[in-house]
Design a protein around this nucleic acid. Structure first.
Lengths: 229, 229
DNA sequence: GATAGTTTCATACATATGTTTGAAAAGCAA
DNA sequence: TTGCTTTTCAAACATATGTATGAAACTATC
């Protein structure tokens, strides 16, 4: 057991450096210098560079997924086993958006690391992300419970678009700011979440009330805070 | 001047290999072997590996942007200088979606290369993508013309979400197929385009008719082809 | 405090990979 | 042909970078 403190120092240093300078640009030697440990320590404690990166990503990833599922479960319990569709989307996109765009976390290395990981796709991370499907299935299942009888493909498309919008907002927040010359406010995370949720629900229900079963999707309650009108 | 045929062979081989095996996994030696040219030819003709990648990406990128703008202009001319908002979105997301998901192009190295480029973000390509903003501004301008007086931030959010959905569909088509166990049909590109366009318009207009000026957005004409109902 | 296990360290290893070189070959104009 | 430019080629270069090694330092248990 012993120190374990070298291990943590490496993790922290690696997260910080990767977050700031990207994966392509940070070597093990940079990391051990930042952590003030010996080069061989990385292989001793993690086995390889890729396993170090994987551990970093898995840790943050698991935490994020846990947050999502907790929010989903809370919503389902509040609704007696059936969450509203917008609550489901909120549980899906809220945690990553808050984590990566949140004000206080602006300086958080963890958040910047996850943003980096979503921009620069590096092999060990790709491998892990591919196993995320099981996690998403839980949300698909919740959506089925929320809208029983609803066409399944539509549910998946809704899920897909919700992820698209949240992910892309995280990835390209800089570009959106530049493109809009600051007109798009990326400071109010909650407003962004509600915006994504709202559009996701619309994507699913088609604006006009959809049907098949009457299963009306729960009404949006988190209103958009739009500046116009 | 002379042969120029070595140059082309390198470009073609590089595109094919990068498309198939990714950037991280293909070396110059692989490329020159595939192209049956000498190793030094790459540096002679392109200066560096990065410049080779950049040229590949720029070529395809320019072609794509040209296609987009042509479609946009056609729509604007058809509408007497003002394109409908859904036509604008269609011009924005249609070309890349057709290019990357299209049936006949399934085998096209160019398409697979562009998909790869959107998944594995490599420095030379990132640098180029950052300059894409000017191109997007043209679409923002068209949107302003289509919806004069409309809140600008909303327009940018709409543009942003449209790109999010198209880009994410290209990036994650495999995952969507797996997640939905084949229930989401990624074969009918036109249907996907209309789906993205439809959601984008809804995202912009908020489902209910928006207002500020009465400036009603042009009605959707390309209907979704949904399987349900 | 001796022994065994764990951790750290300096150093070396391996080697993949982009790049450069300098000469040979090919092309081309006169 | 001659002389010039452009292109090709084999080989060397450089070197960044992940990994392995074996000894030393440290820790803890008896």
């Amino acid at each position: 057991m012993a120190s374990d403190q070298t291990r943590s120092a490496i993790l922290a240093a690696a997260e910080r450096l990767y977050a700031d300078r990207g994966f392509g640009d940070v070597t093990l030697r940079d990391i051990v210098a930042e952590a003030n440990v010996n080069l061989a320590a990385v292989n001793y404690h993690f086995g390889s560079k890729d396993e170090l990166i994987a551990e970093l990503f898995v840790t943050r990833s698991i935490a994020g997924n846990r947050e999502r599922l907790a929010e989903l479960r809370a919503a389902e319990e509040a609704g007696g086993g059936r969450a509203s569709i917008d609550a489901i989307f909120r549980a899906l996109v809220g945690p990553p958006l808050r984590g990566c765009l949140g004000r206080d976390r602006e300086s958080s290395a963890a958040a910047r690391f996850m943003i980096r990981a979503s921009i620069e796709t590096v092999p060990p991370i790709r491998r892990i992300r591919n196993r995320e499907i099981d996690h998403l299935r839980k949300f698909a299942a919740a959506m089925r419970r929320a809208l029983p009888g609803y066409d399944e493909a539509e549910l998946y498309w809704g899920l897909h678009f919700a992820l698209a919008m949240s992910h892309h907002t995280i990835r390209e927040k800089e570009r959106l700011t530049k493109l809009s010359e600051g007109k798009c406010d990326l400071g109010d995370v909650q407003a962004i979440i509600e915006r994504v949720v709202s559009v996701s629900v619309m994507a699913l229900t088609g604006g006009e009330a959809k049907s098949k079963p009457p299963a009306r999707p729960a009404a949006l309650h988190g209103r958009l805070t739009r500046q116009d009108l």
